[in-house]
């Protein structure tokens, strides 16, 4: 089989290519800036897209690469990736299976697993889809010794214009591979309060993560630390949820954790249904206690 993999995030290409390279030949497409993250993905061919990227002109470039020569097109479900998947599906008439976090291919049919009903259920589907959007972080990337043949394509012009661009703090954090995660929710109340949480992160040698409001609405943490349905799917040995209510969309991101600890002042918070150990109380009182006891 032949696969085309695209993501605007190099790491996501490597995740998907690692899964696919045992099943067939992988041609990876990504933005030129992402080259280094894709070099060891085990792709046969690496196509770098050069120029200002929009969903429109990236789709155009992919469509020009003779998609009919591929059995499947896999696209990481990033904001840009989803838009591109939709456009090429409309233009080629090929169906999409969306938001897969696992899949198997058998006899021209693909079986995908994804969350449904906002994360309350897992739906397994069998479709004739040729385009698949894959939830980032679904597969563990591993390095391959084979280097790809490289090619650079200049992106075509587009009606969209980039007026301003600012890189966000590229922390290079990878909460998906963290062993212990200290995750904070709206309950911490302010950005400054994160300082009060850091001692626990240090004491556990963990990584800091957060709920969607903390990462997106308030920007107390960077977006790459968001856990949940629309964020990262994490599976640490211990997940410590501080001031997180436990809405289903959050749970969908941390269900794979081995042990879940929750601290919440509301004893009816749904997080207590999804934890192994819970403490009812003020997190600002409990966090220092935990730190102190861990140091002993």
């Amino acid at each position: 089989m032949k696969f085309l993999v695209f993501s605007d995030v190099g790491k996501n290409v490597s995740e998907i290519a690692t899964k696919l390279r045992d099943l067939g030949e992988v041609h990876s497409f990504t933005l030129k800036s992402q080259r280094d993250a894709v070099m060891k993905s085990g792709s046969k061919k690496l196509v770098l897209l050069d120029g200002t990227s929009f969903s429109g002109n990236v789709s155009e470039a992919l469509l020009k690469s003779d998609l009919s020569g591929y059995d499947y097109v896999f696209i990481a479900s990033t904001p840009l990736g989803r838009d591109i998947a939709g456009i090429i599906s409309a233009k080629t008439g090929n169906m999409i299976a969306s938001e897969a976090f696992d899949f198997t291919i058998d006899n021209g049919k693909i079986r995908t697993k994804r969350f449904f009903f906002g994360g309350k259920t897992i739906m397994e589907e069998e479709t004739g889809a040729k385009i698949v959007t894959v939830s980032p972080g679904s597969f563990e990337p591993s390095e391959s010794p084979d280097s790809p043949a490289e090619e650079t394509i200049t992106l075509p012009g587009s009606p969209e214009k980039l007026l301003e661009e600012k890189d966000r703090e590229a922390g290079g954090t990878n909460i998906e591979s963290a062993g212990i995660i200290v995750s904070v929710g709206r309950g911490i109340g302010s950005k400054e309060a994160i300082e009060k949480i850091t001692p626990l992160v240090t004491a556990t040698r963990g990584e800091l993560a957060g709920s969607r409001p903390v990462c997106l609405d308030y920007r107390w943490l960077s977006e790459e630390r968001q856990v949940g349905l629309s964020g990262k799917k994490v599976k640490p040995r211990v997940y410590i949820a501080l001031g997180i209510s436990g809405q289903i969309q959050h749970i969908a991101g941390m269900r794979g954790s081995k042990i879940v600890v929750a601290v919440n002042k509301d004893k009816d918070a749904p997080i207590f249904q999804e934890c192994d150990y819970g403490i009812v109380g003020d997190l600002f009182q409990i966090v220092p206690k935990l730190v102190e006891k861990l140091k002993k």
Binding site: V238, Q273, I279, V280
Partner: peptide, 20 residues
């Protein structure tokens, strides 16, 4: 999940710290 919920903060912290 085990759902062991502590309303006694002192005891809860003790147990949870042990687990962590």
């Amino acid at each position: 999940r085990k759902r062991l919920i502590f309303e006694d903060v002192e005891k809860g912290s003790e147990e949870v710290a042990k687990i962590i």
